[in-house]
Design a protein around this nucleic acid. Structure first.
Length: 280
DNA sequence: CGCTTTTGACCAGCGC
DNA sequence: GCGCTGGTCAAAAGCG
């Protein structure tokens, strides 16, 4: 599936001085709270379903491996979707059902190796940097141009704690250069720099001062390694993730919703309707 | 002066 | 064994 990125941010800065009265705002806030609650319940339900499916998938893979031993080896990169760790779905041959020994190996490696997670971050088109602010301090130790992507891949180590084993790789998406594909490896053995979380900071990103502020490296459960964030707009997502549970839910939401083009369309329609319906 | 980024060199794994 | 590729190292340079 071609990655899509859902812009979950809201632009509250447009016409701040316009006609909203306090009463309208309170009403709006109440409505949003209700909607938030409803979405949370929906997400909980989705999470349950996801876990059940994940369990079934694991069983299926194990069963397949026992009954269908060796297939011809292929070079790792071939037939592998750039954002798919398991090669189970979306390989370039369109053969979405075959589970090869290779993919099984990757799946097992992925489950047994240190925590690896992938985050897709949407940035402004004009933003050419490979710096993703996520709440930790990173030291860049290398940059490479890889074979399958003309844009360079940057390698970072966590420099907040000398012994922290966490590394991350950042590279622009081949399909959409405004998306930064960030791969985290390992887990931090220290707390993040701020207790609070803010996902964003599209501030003057310069190499120096690699901003220490924003969310911690997402500790995404291995079952759901890909997360998409929108960093174009800032400051409004931060309150959404005060706990790991909430963070997990948001991750699940982003992951689920971005796979559903109908939802994206419906959401866009709803938001634009809301905006057009408002008295500007 | 200390820390960080840059960047070419080096190394290891893999396929042929 | 060779070549390709991804990942890491380390010296040099920049910045506050």
């Amino acid at each position: 599936m071609e990655p899509t990125c859902l812009d979950t941010s809201l632009n509250l800065n447009a016409h701040p001085s316009s006609v909203h009265t306090d009463g309208v705002l309170v009403e709006e806030l109440r409505r949003l709270s209700c909607e938030n609650k409803r979405l949370t319940e929906m997400l909980t339900h989705l999470c349950d379903n996801y876990m059940a499916l994940q369990k079934q998938l694991t069983q299926l893979i194990n069963t397949n491996f026992e009954h269908d031993p060796v297939e011809s080896r292929k070079r790792k990169a071939e037939g592998e979707c750039c954002t798919n760790k398991f090669g189970v779905v979306n390989n370039s041959n369109g053969d979405s059902s075959s589970i090869t020994e290779d993919s099984l190996k990757r799946y097992k490696d992925f489950n047994s190796s240190p925590k690896v997670s992938k985050v897709l971050v949407k940035t402004e088109a004009s933003n050419n940097s490979l710096y993703v602010m996520d709440g930790y301090q990173w030291r860049k130790y290398g940059q490479k141009v890889t074979r399958d992507n003309p844009s360079p891949r940057a390698y970072f180590r966590c420099s907040f704690a000398p012994t922290c084993p966490v590394k991350k790789k950042v590279q622009r998406s081949l399909e959409d250069p405004t998306i930064l594909v960030t791969t985290y490896e390992g887990e931090h053995n220290h707390g993040h720099q701020r207790g609070e979380i803010s996902l964003v900071s599209n501030q003057s990103e310069g190499p120096k001062g690699s901003s220490p502020v924003s969310s911690p490296t997402p500790s995404i459960p291995s079952a759901c390694p890909t997360l998409m964030l929108d960093m174009v707009k800032s400051g409004l997502v931060e309150s959404a993730q005060k706990s790991s549970v909430q963070q997990f839910l948001v991750q699940q939401m982003a992951s689920s919703l971005t796979r559903d083009p109908n939802f994206t369309t419906a959401l866009a329609t709803a938001i634009s309707g809301k905006i057009l319906g408002a008295k500007w």
